[in-house]
Design a binder for these strands. Structure first.
Length: 873
RNA sequence: GAGGGUAUAGCUCAGUUGGUUAGAGCGCUUGCUUGACAUGCAAGAGGUCGGUGGUUCGAGUCCACUUAUCCUCACCA
C-alpha cells in the first residue's frame, strides 16, 4: 500500500524527528579511517555568549552543504564543532549579571569569579549548539570542543612557550589601546573608528627665555599635562634656531624641550607639534627617539591621575573643559578650529579608546607574517573569491606587533611567573613551583589572560589533539575548507595561517571560502541597536530549516553580501511544498511493491529526454560545488525540479500512468528514479525534506545522507531526443500562447493540423498535444490548406487550428506581419555575421554552425509566415 | 591617503572559460476549481546590462577612463 503524505509539507512534523534519527544512526560521526580520503571543516567557533543570528545561519548552512555533499561522495568527512570562550564578551556578561546582584567582580575574587563564569558557561554555553542543530548541521558532536577546555589550553601553553623560547613573544612597555570601560588593553584590530565632532585647539607655549612663544595645536587638550616635549622638523627654517630651547607649558608650568624629529611635518599646522609619549602612539615613537620622558597622566578607568596635578580626579572630558578654560584665562588659547575626526572606540562597548603606555605581552609579528604571506602566494592556501588575498597581503605586510595580554580573568592565564627575589620571569608549560633563574619559591603568576583570538588561532590543530600526535591530527590535518565571513579575515583567518605555519610547518586549510554578511531588506547591517535583526530560529519555526537554508544558499555568490527578506523565504517554502507534492503524486501511483530505483531502460521520448537532462544536471551541480558556486548549483536544481520535472515530465507521465500496465510501469520507474536521484543532489541544501521523502520512496540503505552521490552516466546522453522534445515543447508553447491571446478556454478542444518535416516526432507527440495543448485530434502532414484557420509558425512546424468565429482575420494579418518583421530582423543580424569573413575564419566551427542552423530555421519560418499571409488573402 | 566591492527588469539578485533571442524570484496584467500542489497551472508586459572609449569576427562578460554608491585599512598637531 502506498504511503499517504499530507497535502502540504509541514516541516514541524518532520525536522526534529529526522534530526533525531540521524543522531541515533550516528551518521555525523567521522570514523577517522586512514584508508579513506579525508574532508575536514572546523567550525568557526561561535561565542558561548552568542545566540544564533543570520550570519551563523549562513556560515553553517554553507558548511553543512559542503560537508553533506562530500560525505555522500564517500569522503571520510569530519565537521568539527565547538565554541569560543570569548573572553571579553563573556566576562562583560558575567560582570553585568553580578552587578544586578549588587556584586563587584573584585568582591568575589579571581577564584570566585571564575567559578561563576564556569557555571554560566554550563548553563548557557550549549545554547548556540542546540540552535545549530535546529538548522540541520551535521557536525560530529562527539568531537565537540571548547577553546578553554583542557586540550585547547594545553595547546595554548605550548604555543606561548614555543614563541617565548624563540623570542617571538616578549613583554614590554608600549603604547596600547586601553578601553576605560572594559578596563583592559585591546589589540589594534579590536578598535572601531567612529566619526565624532572635535576641534583643533591652538595653544601658545612661551619660551622660557621670554623670547615669545611657539604655537602648537591639539585635538586632545586633556593630554597636555602629559606633554614632555615639542617637536619641529629638523629642516624647518622657521624653527631651526629654536631646537634645544625650552618652553613652559602654560598653566601647568612644567618646562619641556623643543626637539627635532622628522615626524613633525613642516606643511601641517604650525609645523610644531606637542609630544605626549604616554598617550599617543606616534608621540611615543618620537619620545623614544628624542629621549623624552613618558608621563602617564591617566588612570585605568578614564580619570586623570595624580600626575595631572590640579586636574587629578577629573574625568577626561571634565579635564578637557577645565584645561581649555584655564588656558583661555591665561591667554594661551590662540584659537579653536572645529573639525570632525575618526575616534577609535572599543569594538565591544564603543567607549573611546585611550592610547596609553602600559606593560603588556606582545607577539612579534614580522617573522611570523613572512611565511604566512608566502604560503598564500604559493597557492598552498587559496581564498575564494581570490580577491581576498589582496586584503590579506595588505594587512600582513603592514602588520604591527600583536598585544595579547588582557586585564581580564576569563581566559587562558598567561603562563609567566614573576620572581619576587630576582625579578626574572619564568615561562613554563607546567605550573612551576620555583623560579627557573634563582630557584626561589617566591613566585607569582601574571594575573592577565590572553586575547581570546590567541586560542582561536590554534583551532584547526588544537581541536585535533595537538600538541599530542593523535590519529585524528595525522588523518584530518591540514583541514580542507574554512568557511567564514570577510569581516573576520584579520581576527581569525590570518592568525590561524601564521600560527599553523609556525607551529605545524603546514597551512591550516587548503581553501578559505569567504562569504559576505546577511543584511536586512533595506540593505542595512543587522544589529541590536537598529533592532532590525531577523531571528533565524523564528524563521525556522515558521517556514522550516530547509526553507531558510535554501534562501541563504540561493543567489549566494562568494564574498558578496546578501539581503534577507521574508518574501524570499516564502519562495523557498513554496519550493519545498512543490517537491513535496511531486513526491506525493508519485507515491499515489505506487503500490508499494516496487524495489529500490535503478537506472531505467528508457525507450519513450519523454523518458529519454528527462533522463538526459537529469544527467547533465548531475554533472553541472557537481562541477558547481567543486568551484564553490553553491548558489548556481542550487538554482539549477530549482529550475530542473520545478520546470523540467514537475511542469513537463510529470504532466507527460500522467498519460501513461492513466493507461496502466506496462506503459505505466515504465513511467513509474523513471519518475521514481529521477525523483530519488534529484533528492540526493538536493539533500545537502535541503536535508530534512529530502530525507523525509526519500524514506517514503522505495530505497536502499538507511538514510539519504549516506547514499552515494549521483554520477554522470554516458548511457543517459540522448541528444537526439532532447532536440525532438524541444521541437514539441516549442509547438505546445506556441499553441498555448495563441489560444491565450484569443482567450480560448482550455476546455474548448480544437483540431490541430501540423505541417512539418518531423512527422515521426509529432506522431509520438500527438498525446502530448492533446494533454498539454488542448488538442482534440491531431493530423500530421507535409502541408495543409485549412481556410480560415489560425496558423502558428515555429521553427520546425506550422500549426493550423480552425477556430471558426473566434478568428479575427484582420488581427491575424497584423500578428503575422509583426512576426515576420521580427524574424527578418533577426535573420539580417545573422546574415551579417555569416557574411563577415572574419567571423567565418576566426570563430570556432561549432559557433558558425549554430548560426547557419539558425539562418536555415529563420528562412523556413519566414516562408511559412508568408504562406499563411497569402492564405488569409 | 591607500586598497577593494557593487552598478543587469518596478524591487531583490543570478549570469561559470567572451559565442544563438540576457535569466530567476517577488510584484504587475490576463485566463484557469486541468483528479500532486491556488504555497498551484498557463500566457504576457517589462532591460539600449551606470557612462565614454578600446581590444575582438563577436563584449553584460576583458582593458582604460569616468560617474554613483558601499566597504576595509591607515592617518588626522
Amino acid at each position: 500500500m502506498a504511503k499517504e503524505l499530507a497535502k502540504q509539507y509541514d516541516p514541524k512534523q518532520v525536522e526534529d524527528r529526522i534530526y533525531q534519527s540521524w543522531i541515533e544512526g550516528d551518521y555525523f560521526h567521522a570514523p577517522c579511517d586512514p584508508e579513506r580520503k579525508p574532508y575536514t571543516i572546523v567550525i568557526p567557533p561561535p561565542n558561548i555568549t552568542g545566540q544564533l543570528h543570520m550570519g551563523h545561519a549562513l556560515d553553517n548552512t554553507l558548511q553543512d552543504i559542503l560537508i553533506r555533499w562530500r560525505r555522500m561522495q564517500g569522503y571520510d568527512t569530519l565537521w568539527l564543532p565547538g565554541t569560543d570562550h570569548a573572553s571579553i564578551a563573556t566576562e562583560a556578561k558575567i560582570v553585568d549579571a553580578l552587578r544586578a546582584e549588587g556584586i563587584q567582580k573584585e568582591d568575589l575574587g579571581r577564584e570566585g569569579f571564575l567559578k561563576r563564569a564556569w557555571e554560566w558557561r554550563a548553563q548557557y554555553g550549549g545554547r548556540i549548539v542546540e540552535q545549530l542543530k535546529k538548522l540541520g548541521s551535521s557536525c560530529d558532536w562527539a568531537r565537540e570542543r571548547f577553546t578553554l577546555d583542557e586540550g585547547c589550553s594545553k595547546a595554548v601553553r605550548e604555543v606561548f612557550n614555543n614563541l617565548y623560547e624563540k623570542g617571538l613573544i616578549y613583554r614590554g612597555e608600549r603604547i596600547i589601546n586601553w578601553c576605560p570601560h572594559c578596563k583592559t588593553s585591546i589589540s589594534d584590530i579590536e578598535m572601531e573608528y567612529e566619526e565624532k565632532d572635535g576641534a583643533f585647539w591652538h595653544m601658545a607655549y612661551p619660551f622660557t627665555d621670554g623670547s615669545g612663544a611657539i604655537i602648537v595645536a591639539t585635538t586632545r587638550p586633556e593630554t597636555i599635562p602629559g606633554d614632555t616635549g615639542v617637536a619641529v622638523h629638523p629642516d624647518d627654517e622657521r624653527y631651526k634656531d629654536l631646537i634645544g630651547k625650552t618652553v613652559r607649558i602654560p598653566v601647568i608650568g612644567r618646562e619641556i624641550p623643543i626637539v627635532a624629529d622628522s615626524y613633525a611635518k613642516m606643511d601641517k599646522g604650525t609645523g610644531a607639534v606637542k609630544i605626549t609619549p604616554a598617550h599617543d602612539p606616534n608621540d611615543f615613537e618620537v619620545g623614544l627617539r628624542c629621549n623624552l620622558p613618558i608621563l602617564n597622566v591617566m588612570t585605568d578607568d578614564g580619570y586623570m591621575n595624580e600626575k595631572a596635578g590640579k586636574y587629578a580626579g577629573m574625568t577626561l572630558a571634565e579635564c578637557r573643559k577645565a584645561i581649555v578654560a584655564d588656558f583661555e584665562a591665561a591667554g594661551a588659547l590662540v584659537k579653536i578650529e572645529p573639525t570632525k575626526h575618526e575616534v577609535g572606540t572599543c569594538y565591544r562597548c564603543h567607549t573611546s579608546v585611550e592610547p596609553r603606555v602600559s606593560e603588556q605581552w606582545f607577539v612579534k609579528m614580522q617573522p611570523l607574517a613572512e611565511p604566512a604571506i608566502k604560503v598564500v602566494r604559493e597557492g598552498k592556501t587559496k581564498f575564494i573569491p581570490e580577491r581576498f588575498d589582496k586584503t590579506y597581503y595588505n594587512w600582513m605586510e603592514n602588520i604591527r606587533d600583536w598585544c595579547i595580554s588582557r586585564q581580564l580573568w576569563w581566559g587562558h592565564r598567561i603562563p609567566a611567573w614573576y620572581c619576587a627575589d630576582c625579578g626574572k620571569i619564568t615561562v613554563s608549560r607546567e605550573d612551576p613551583t620555583h623560579c627557573a633563574h634563582c630557584g626561589s619559591a617566591n613566585i607569582e603568576q601574571d594575573p592577565d589572560t590572553l586575547d581570546t583570538w590567541f586560542s582561536s588561532a590554534l583551532w584547526p590543530f588544537s581541536t585535533l589533539g595537538w600538541p599530542d600526535k593523535t590519529p585524528e591530527l595525522a588523518h584530518y590535518y591540514p583541514t580542507s575548507t574554512l568557511v567564514t565571513g570577510y569581516d573576520i579575515i584579520f581576527f581569525w583567518v590570518a592568525r590561524m595561517i601564521f600560527s599553523a605555519c609556525e607551529q605545524m610547518g603546514e597551512v591550516p586549510f587548503d581553501t578559505v571560502f569567504i562569504h559576505g554578511i546577511v543584511r536586512d531588506e533595506l540593505g542595512r547591517k543587522m544589529s541590536k541597536s537598529l533592532g532590525n535583526g531577523i531571528d533565524p530560529l523564528l524563521v525556522i519555526d515558521k517556514y522550516g530549516a530547509d526553507a531558510l537554508r535554501l534562501t541563504l544558499a540561493t543567489g549566494n555568490s562568494p564574498g558578496n553580501d546578501m539581503r534577507f527578506s521574508e518574501k524570499k523565504v516564502e519562495a523557498s517554502r513554496n519550493f519545498a511544498n512543490k517537491i513535496w507534492n511531486a513526491a506525493r503524486f508519485i507515491l499515489m501511483n505506487l503500490d508499494g511493491s516496487e524495489g529500490a530505483p535503478a537506472v531505467p531502460q528508457a525507450e519513450a521520448l519523454e523518458d529519454k529526454w528527462v533522463l538526459s537532462l537529469f544527467n547533465k544536471l548531475v554533472k553541472e551541480v557537481t562541477d558547481n560545488l567543486e568551484k564553490f558556486e553553491l548558489g548556481i548549483a542550487v538554482a539549477k536544481l530549482y529550475d530542473f525540479i520545478w520546470d523540467i520535472f514537475c511542469d513537463w515530465y510529470i504532466e507527460l507521465a500522467k498519460i501513461r500512468l492513466q493507461q496502466g500496465g506496462a506503459p505505466a510501469a515504465q513511467a513509474k520507474s523513471v519518475l521514481v528514479y529521477v525523483l530519488s536521484e534529484t533528492l540526493k543532489l538536493l539533500h545537502p541544501f535541503m536535508p530534512f525534506i529530502t530525507e523525509e521523502i526519500w524514506q517514503t520512496l522505495p530505497h536502499e540503505g538507511d538514510t539519504i545522507m549516506l547514499s552515494p552521490w549521483p554520477q554522470y552516466n554516458e548511457a543517459l546522453c540522448f541528444d537526439e531526443d532532447e532536440k525532438h522534445m524541444d521541437i514539441i515543447m516549442e509547438a505546445i508553447r506556441a499553441i498555448r500562447n495563441r489560444r491565450a491571446e484569443m482567450n480560448v478556454p482550455p476546455s474548448r478542444k480544437a483540431h490541430v493540423y501540423i505541417a512539418t518535416e518531423y512527422k515521426d516526432v509529432f506522431r509520438t507527440a500527438t498525446v502530448f498535444l492533446q494533454r498539454l495543448a488542448s488538442a482534440a485530434d491531431v493530423e500530421i502532414g507535409d502541408s495543409f490548406e485549412i481556410p480560415g484557420a489560425v496558423s502558428i509558425v515555429t521553427a520546425h512546424a506550422k500549426v493550423y487550428i480552425p477556430m471558426g468565429d473566434l478568428v479575427d482575420f484582420e488581427a491575424e494579418r497584423k500578428r503575422l506581419s509583426k512576426e515576420k518583421e521580427g524574424a527578418e530582423k533577426k535573420l539580417a543580424g545573422i546574415c551579417a555575421k555569416l557574411n563577415n569573413p572574419g567571423f567565418l575564419s576566426k570563430a570556432p566551427e561549432a559557433v558558425v554552425n549554430v548560426q547557419r542552423e539558425e539562418e536555415k530555421k529563420l528562412r523556413e519560418k519566414i516562408k511559412m509566415i508568408e504562406e499563411s499571409l497569402a492564405a488569409l488573402g
